[in-house]
Amino acid sequence: MAGDIWVMVRMKDGKADRAARDAMAIASAMAARTGGQVAAWVFGPEGEAPAAASEGFGGYAPDRLYVCPLGAGEDGPAGLGDALSGRRAAVAMLARTEVAEVGAVLVPEGQLALDAAAGLAVALGGAVVAHCRAVEWSGREWLYLVPAFGGLAAIACPGSGPQVISLVAGAGLVGEPAEGRTKAPEVIAVQAPAPSDRDPVVAGGPSPVALPSDALETARLVVAGGMGAGDPSGWRLISDFAASLGAALGATRPAVDEGWAPAEAMIGQSGKRVEPEVLISVGVSGDLQHLVGVGEGTTVIAVNSDPDAPIFGRADHGVVGDFRRFLPAISRRVKSGPADG
């Protein structure tokens, strides 16, 4: 791989979001190997870009900072229209590839980035990697680690085309230091490409609503249940337990597939990302595809009958045994008033 490393940055409340810092650190390490530059792309109002650079990048400033006011128009910033502008984002970025060769593009997971990533890969003849949770230098090439088959698959892109990598929140860099970069970036304003009939448009009628980030995403205490529930009666026990603690109830994908919990409750790669203070995991094996949905800052207490379940590799506290034995005792104690022991 040769050339520049590009990073797509997602803005939240006028700042680069949390994922941007991790992505910039990875980009910095990659650029050190290619000898290229780091360029950040901010899609949003121009005024926000410098703030994004100084506050969001955590000491990994890019060499160039492209600012493209995409979607800042009729639908308002961060609206549904923005999320559907991936094709135009790709067009804006492609217009700059004549200036420099692109080695890799790091994008945060999300619809805009996904459509943009596909557009870039197709136009540039490159590769796309989805759900990347860590980037590792093998000594010969970059490996992108993605959850697979209960473990991690290490994916490489041996071709000469650019490597478009979609990073999950909290994606890390393995075995390679990232040097800080403090030089103030060159800020380059890029015009938003005009919409075309190749873009879906937000239809008239009731304006799109932001779904209330539900109880699960805002809760400070979450109980997540899995297939270990065994049957609907086991699931009821888990959901009663959550209710007794005033916790929001989450689920693994198989538990949703069983129909025990609604799709909205799914935590993980195909579902939600949560970061409560504490998560009590019940009958969950701890597959990465589930755990990528649990924030790093969360204290995890796991109840699982298998002492070798991978969940104990992530949990801070473990209870080994049948949840049916333990949950009722905890619920009872909560109901009976302040803990005395």
């Binding site: 796991a302 506290h317 473990g318």
Partner: peptide, 19 residues
């Protein structure tokens, strides 16, 4: 354009303090 070089098993390292 992508190849899977290897599939690594989930780490079995235990971090939880067992209660």
């Amino acid at each position: 354009p992508t190849v899977v070089r290897e599939v690594r098993p989930a780490s079995t390292a235990k971090r939880a303090v067992i209660i």
